[in-house]
């Protein structure tokens, strides 16, 4: 069966590594799936994981969080904090019944244009397979309406 579902994926990325890496993907003209749209942050340390919930409840089918590699953070340690928070938050999300397969947490440096395309494509095809994330939206809408 042809899967014509086009998922909505939001990417939260840091300005210094992944945003620049995605710029390099562009300069290198490497093609990737248009399902992913980027929101720029100064650092993954800034990314409040509540934003992920916000994204899911507003129609996102998948989320990418990507920053600098360990030790390469422009702000020294922001990415470590993000990783630490992610480890805690992941169990919390899991407990809340959120499908953590829909979240890709990775590192893409400013030099890894090709890696960014790969991250986008694998995430997009994974989310395509998982299908629309109706389950979570339904719950949040129910709560909203009750």
């Amino acid at each position: 069966m042809e899967n014509d579902f086009e998922p909505k994926i939001v990417a939260f990325v840091c300005n210094w590594c992944t945003y620049a890496g995605a710029d390099l993907t562009g300069t290198s003209r490497i093609k990737y799936s248009p399902n992913v749209k980027i929101i720029r942050f100064p650092c993954t340390g800034r990314i409040d994981f509540m934003l992920l919930l916000k994204a899911f409840s507003n129609g996102a089918d998948g989320v990418i969080v990507s920053g600098c590699h360990p030790n390469d953070c422009h702000y020294t340690s922001g990415n470590f904090h993000a990783r630490r928070r992610w480890v805690v938050f992941r169990t919390l999300l899991d407990f809340m019944g959120i499908d953590i397969n829909r979240i890709t947490f990775t590192w893409v440096s400013a030099a890894e244009g090709a890696k960014w395309a790969e991250v986008v494509n694998t995430t997009a095809s994974k989310i395509k397979e998982l299908g629309p994330y109706e389950a979570y939206r339904k719950i949040t809408n129910e709560i909203w309406e009750s």
Binding site: F41, P42, C43, G45, R46, I47, D48, F49, H74, Y75, S77, G78, H81, A82, R85
Partner: peptide, 8 residues
Amino acid sequence: GCGTCVAF
């Protein structure tokens, strides 16, 4: 301006 404190 890294914003780590904001998230924390």
